[in-house]
Computed example of a mutant assay.
Amino acid sequence: MISQTSSADIQQIIRRTRSGKIAVSCKYKNKFIPRFLIGIVFLCLLSLIYLDINWIKLALRLPDIGGIFWELAHFNFANFDLILPAILETISIAVLSLLYSLLLGIFFGMFAARNIFRIIWLSVFTQAFFTFLRAVPTPIWVLLMLVCLGMGPEAGVAGLCVHTTAFFTKSFAQTFESIPEETLEALAVTGTSRLNIFTNAVLPAAFSQIVAWTGMRLEINFSECAILGMIGAGGVGFVISRNMQNYDYGTAGLAIFLVFLIAYSIERLFVFVKQKSA
């Protein structure tokens, strides 16, 4: 039955052209993809019409972009004593927010996963709640924390924790749900509690994925800290913003380069850790 169907399909899909070459045509086309792409193009056209971009002005200003980058590339080490503490503060904010969010993400991800406690309403409620938290951008959470806690790194840590915890909850829940159902059922039959199954089977099996998500989020948190400092949450973002406003592009360029260097180092470090833990 399978071989007959396969032969019929092959005869309909493969045909020879006049030049003797074989032309392959796809019989089963996904009609949704072209419609989706057409919709994206249509939305792009509507956006261009709505924004009414002055393309002539943009073209005339393009050389200025190259000039700014050229100025940024001339590093000024005179204010390095100001950049270094700001970099260290940014790293501290990123690490603290990551650590707190990692623990909370594992805890709430346990409830968000459908295969751990098997309480559907609890999983749906947890996922919906953290979807709302994740939908609100990080700068808004930081601004709210600035109102509550005042200016300083505390607001940055708290604001980043909200969005990072929501991110981890969704990511870890998907990771926990990818564990083979047969493994969980076999452990449940032995009388093992759901909490013990989670701590002794699910977490060890998901460890490499947790490390991968943690590394990616630390890189994101560090990059976001550089932006959040511009709105008063502490860190290197304030140094970059102030020097850009004062046209001290050399100092700002040095700070931006250090942000890039540290972000790249974080990425490579967690790639190494993930390879060792696999």
Rank of each mutant, 00 (worst) to 15 (best):
A135C: 11
V136A: 11
P137A: 08
P137Y: 04
V142L: 00
L143P: 05
L143M: 13
L143D: 08
L143V: 13
L143T: 12
M145S: 11
M145Q: 12
M145F: 13
L146Y: 06
L146T: 06
L146E: 10
G150N: 11
M151F: 14
G152D: 06
P153G: 10
P153C: 06
E154K: 15
A155E: 07
G156K: 07
G156I: 09
V157Y: 01
A158T: 10
G159N: 08
G159P: 02
L160G: 06
C161W: 06
C161L: 14
V162H: 04
V162N: 02
V162K: 07
H163S: 14
T164K: 04
T164V: 05
T165P: 01
F167A: 12
F167I: 06
F168N: 12
T169F: 01
K170A: 05
K170N: 08
K170G: 05
K170M: 00
S171M: 11
F172T: 09
T175P: 00
E177W: 00
S178I: 03
S178V: 04
I179P: 07
P180W: 11
P180F: 06
E181K: 15
E181Y: 13
E182C: 10
E182K: 14
E185Q: 14
E185G: 09
A186R: 08
A186D: 06
L187G: 10
L187Y: 12
A188Q: 10
A188I: 02
A188R: 14
A188G: 05
A188Y: 03
T190N: 09
G191Y: 07
G191S: 09
S193G: 10
S193F: 00
R194Q: 13
R194G: 05
I197V: 04
I197F: 02
F198E: 03
F198S: 04
F198A: 02
N200Y: 14
A201N: 06
A201P: 01
V202F: 03
V202W: 00
V202L: 01
L203F: 03
P204K: 03
P204V: 02
A205I: 08
F207H: 11
F207C: 06
F207A: 12
S208W: 04
Q209V: 07
Q209N: 15
Q209M: 13
I210V: 02
V211R: 03
V211F: 01
A212M: 06
A212K: 12
W213C: 07
W213E: 12
T214K: 03
T214C: 04
M216P: 00
M216E: 12
L218H: 00
L218S: 01
E219T: 07
I220Q: 03
I220C: 01
I220L: 01
N221T: 01
S223G: 09
S223R: 15
S223W: 00
E224A: 10
E224V: 12
C225V: 10
A226C: 09
I227Y: 08
L228A: 01
G229D: 11
M230I: 02
I231Y: 03
G232M: 05
G232V: 03
G232E: 09
A233C: 00
G234E: 06
G234W: 00
G235S: 05
G235D: 08
V236C: 09
F238T: 09
V239E: 11
V239W: 04
I240K: 12
S241D: 15
R242W: 13
R242D: 15
N243T: 14
N243G: 08
N243P: 07
M244N: 14
N246M: 15
N246F: 14
